[in-house]
Design a protein around this nucleic acid. Sequence first.
DNA 1: GTTAGCACTCTAACCATGAGAGTGCTAACA
DNA 2: TGTTAGCACTCTCATGGTTAGAGTGCTAAC
Lengths: 355, 355
Amino acid sequence: MPRIRRTTGPLDHRAQAILRAVIEEYVATATPVSSQALVERYRLGVSSATVRNVLAELEAAGLLTHPHTSAGRIPTDAGYRFYVETIVEAMPLPPVEELMIRHQFGQVEYASEQWFRLAATTLAAMTRAAGLATPAKPRAAQLRRIDIVSIHDRLASLIVVLREGTIKQLLVALPEPADQETLGLVADLLNATVVDLTADQIERRLGRFEANERVPSLARRFAERVVGLLREYDAAVIEELFSDGLLNVMAAPEFAESAKLRRVFSVLENRAYLAELLPVVAAAGPGHVRVFIGRENPPAEMADVSLVLAPYGRPGQAIGIVGVLGPTRMAYPQAIGTVRFVSGLMNELVDHLYA
Amino acid sequence: MPRIRRTTGPLDHRAQAILRAVIEEYVATATPVSSQALVERYRLGVSSATVRNVLAELEAAGLLTHPHTSAGRIPTDAGYRFYVETIVEAMPLPPVEELMIRHQFGQVEYASEQWFRLAATTLAAMTRAAGLATPAKPRAAQLRRIDIVSIHDRLASLIVVLREGTIKQLLVALPEPADQETLGLVADLLNATVVDLTADQIERRLGRFEANERVPSLARRFAERVVGLLREYDAAVIEELFSDGLLNVMAAPEFAESAKLRRVFSVLENRAYLAELLPVVAAAGPGHVRVFIGRENPPAEMADVSLVLAPYGRPGQAIGIVGVLGPTRMAYPQAIGTVRFVSGLMNELVDHLYA
DNA sequence: GTTAGCACTCTAACCATGAGAGTGCTAACA
DNA sequence: TGTTAGCACTCTCATGGTTAGAGTGCTAAC
């Protein structure tokens, strides 16, 4: 009688090979994997009966399950976890692909918003899952420059440029008519006073403004708007989330009933969970890919999906996230390799900005 | 034997009342409507047998169908069309709702991008379908002002403000190091030369630049980028599409199998169809709501959904679209009323910009 | 420790059945 | 001539029984 050799501790080489085979077969076919199928398609060198014994061990160890008696095995979340951590390495992108992606990033002509879109699109295309990307957001926004453009005599556009080149814009109604020249003077005054400061620092200067009667009220009005803008920017953990390839996820057979799909989308729509994950992922440091598998994600809505995420940017200064979202039945080595490459690429771009 | 009274021409009052009842019942319940259910829930003043005769007529006229013999009736696309055009009026929003929405728009402090988001969100919330909004885009962008901000000595952020306050940004690598002061001079030079022009007009001036040796090469470089930006902006029919409430659509029972859902999303993702629709909707003029029902939409992917769209903006100057996308089984009077109101609101906002 | 063989279990597909829903038609009625 | 009660008819849907097949777990032999 075959004995369960261990329930904890490392599995022997053969058990790992079989677990790997089950997972890769299941990822490819989306149907439970039988012992028969394994001996047919993988060079395991043993009979299906032996494979069955090993499968029983893996199941006892919690790495596989059964939908029912006469079905093959499917991996559990723990199975995928073991697979990702112990069995396989990230699979680097083929050099041709890397070159192609670099080329595409070169094409977008430094329009920074486009980078995030392209990152999401690239991740989606390479992994056949959904690609995600957030801009690298500094902890506390630093003002680089403001500009005020007259729209008409009662309305002006306030443009705020942050240190890394991010732009925020606001329309400001003018209490009394003012032409472009006046507005230009206000902008010059503010640029001379508040540039390179954070919201808090600007507010402190504003105190001095109050005392100084020579500063026109218009400047004060604009300065207040600038502070408001910066504060709002600072408050959002994830300022924006670019995603692409949600259609890929919709195509997965595990999401044939749209109810499951809806739950996943609802998590993405409110973003709270991603915001929660950001510090966790950021803590790992640039280039380090984190994988969150199925029920490892606390929100029940994410029970059927996995996230493969990596931070990019400058620790302490500005951090963003790129990654993919797909069914737990995901080609992890490829996903991890792709996310690693793209996060590296985004790192280079950020370095370029801060150089 | 009940005779089919007519296959074309207006239906009599009773037939219209019954068609209306069928549609409203079906919109509410999403299940085929039986003659029994109609006499129970609507004061038709006739028996179910009479209703059945009328239902048969309506079916012969192509306004209703049968999924199968022993099922109730469901409206056809033509049925909805007749309902929308002849039977019902748009249902205006309750004044309380209007007030609430106006209040929300007041809250967003004139950050124009937020308006489109809010428009989409409002439409989604009021109609329980997906809300759509595109910015009002002028036919040919007119430059209002440019600004150049140094990021570091080899990199600058080029900011282009268009006539209506729209902002475009691009990072420009500098051939040789330049400080903010130099960049400011370049910006001043360009602002003095090319402001209030379109891409074509700027290009003509550029010709003169070439001849004039005193214009520094840096200015020429930036001017070229500005032209490129404007051209790109002009080329896109729909520059951006804001949507919200896609989850509402996913929740509809007709999209229980995610395959249908996927087809719809794929149309939204590539936007080609919406771009095609834009001139059609715009032709109707501001305030005029257009309805596209199911298979009236040429793309096969849209067979199960309807679009309720209205243009806003200034004809000839800048046109955008707002609207909703939902299952053909949609509460059209409410949707049309809501879209009409929101497009009116967006009109006011645009007027404010161009005042 | 491995494997052939086999009994066992469970699913999925198929079919037949019956209840119920809703129609279309007929014939009677106002 | 339009309306309605009544009823036969049709089709779906749920139920249950049967069967083939897939895949396992176990046993006994190697």
